[in-house]
Design a protein around this nucleic acid. Structure first.
Lengths: 196, 196
DNA sequence: GTCTATATTGCGATAGAC
DNA sequence: GTCTATCGCAATATAGAC
C-alpha cells in the first residue's frame, strides 16, 4: 500500500460503508480490510473511526456550497426553483451516498450533526424560502403561501423521491433517463401549487 | 419487576432508544437497565436484541393499516388527498418515533426492512397513486401528471417537514398548533400543483 | 509510513441459582 | 419469571517492529 493511496482508499470505503450501515454499523476491522490497509491506519490518518466518519461527512456535504451559485443564476424565482430542483436531482446522481448521510444524520444524529449537517441543510432551506418570499413580493406566488413551508415542500418532494427508492422499486423507474421528466413534473407541481 | 410490566417496559424503552440511535447504536445492557429489568429478559421475551427490534418495528408500522380507511372515506380524490395529509401529520404527532424507524430503515435497512417496512410504504404510495390516477380520469387533474411521481411528491412534502425538524428549528415553528395551517398549505400546493 | 500483535473494553447470549 | 455471574467474541485503540 503506497502512501497516497492509503488515506484516499480509507475515505472511499468509509464513504460507502458508513453510508450503507451508519457510524455504529461498521467496524474498523471491516473498514481497513476493505481498504486493503491495516487497522492502525485509521487512527494514524484520522485519529480513530469517528475521525474518519467526520472527514467523510465533511467531504460529502462540501458540495452544498454550490447553492450560492444556484441562488445567483437568475433574478426570476421560478428560474431559481428550477435550478435548485435540477441541481438536487443531479447531485443525487453524482453523489449517490450523500442522501444516506443526509437522512441518516437527521434521523440518528451523531456528534457531528450540529457542525457539519445542520448548517448545510438550514442554509439551503433558508435560501429557498427567501426565493419564494421574493416571488410572493413580485406577485408571482400567492400571499397566503408561507415561504418556509413551501421551501420544505419542494425539498421534500425532490429528496423523498430518492429516499424512497428501496420501497418503491416495484412502482416506478428510478433511472436517470427519467430525470428531466421528473424535474419538469416537480417544478410544475410546485410552481403551480404556490402560483397565483 | 412484575411479569406484565417487564415485556411492555422493554418494548417502551426499545422504541425510544432504537428510534434515537438505531439498531446498532444501542446495546442490550443499556436497554435492560433503562427498562429496570435484567439483561437476560431480552433473550427470554424476544429471543435477543434483534427480536426486540423486530417487535418494536412491527408495532410501529401496524398503524399503516389505517390507510385502507382513508382510501374509502370519499369518492372524491381531493378528499382522499386531504385525508392522507391529515392522517400522516396526526400520525407523526401520535407516534413520535415512527418517522425515525421509517427513514432509518430506508437509509440503512436492517434484515427486517423487506418484510415489515417496504410493504407498508409501498402500499401507501400505491394507494395514493391510484387516487391520483382516478382524479386524472375524472378530469380533476392534468393528464401529463404521472400518478406515482405525484404520490411521492405528496408523501415527500408531508414527511420531510417532520424529518427536517432537527435542522430547521431556527427557521419555523413545528408546534402542533400549526398543523391545520400546514395541512391546508400542503393540500393546496399539491392539488393546485397537479390540477387542471 | 505501514505493519503485526496486543491491551482493554464492551458486546450479545446464556447457564444456573432462586 | 427474574436475577446474577460469566462465557466467548468483537470492538477500538495503540505499542513497537521494520
Amino acid at each position: 500500500m503506497t502512501k497516497a493511496d492509503c488515506r484516499g482508499k480509507l475515505m472511499e470505503v468509509g464513504t460507502r460503508l458508513f453510508a450503507e450501515r451508519g457510524l455504529y454499523g461498521v467496524g474498523v476491522r471491516e473498514l481497513s480490510q476493505a481498504a486493503g490497509a491495516s487497522i492502525s491506519m485509521i487512527s494514524y490518518y484520522f485519529g480513530g473511526k469517528e475521525g474518519l466518519y467526520a472527514a467523510v461527512l465533511a467531504e460529502q456535504f462540501g458540495c452544498f456550497d454550490q447553492i450560492d451559485e444556484i441562488r445567483q443564476q437568475g433574478a426570476d424565482p421560478r428560474a431559481v426553483i428550477e435550478g435548485y430542483t435540477r441541481w438536487t436531482i443531479r447531485r443525487h446522481r453524482t453523489h449517490p451516498y450523500l442522501l444516506r448521510f443526509y437522512t441518516g444524520e437527521l434521523t440518528n444524529p451523531t456528534p457531528f450533526f450540529p457542525t457539519i449537517v445542520a448548517p448545510a441543510i438550514e442554509k439551503v432551506i433558508r435560501i429557498l424560502a427567501e426565493v419564494v418570499a421574493e416571488g410572493v413580493e413580485r406577485g408571482d406566488f400567492r400571499r397566503d403561501v408561507k415561504p418556509v413551508n413551501a421551501a420544505l415542500a419542494l425539498a421534500g418532494m425532490v429528496n423523498y423521491f430518492f429516499l424512497s427508492i428501496l420501497a418503491t422499486e416495484t412502482l416506478i423507474s428510478h433511472s436517470p433517463d427519467q430525470d428531466e421528466q421528473l424535474i419538469r413534473q416537480y417544478v410544475t407541481i410546485f410552481t403551480r401549487g404556490i402560483g397565483v
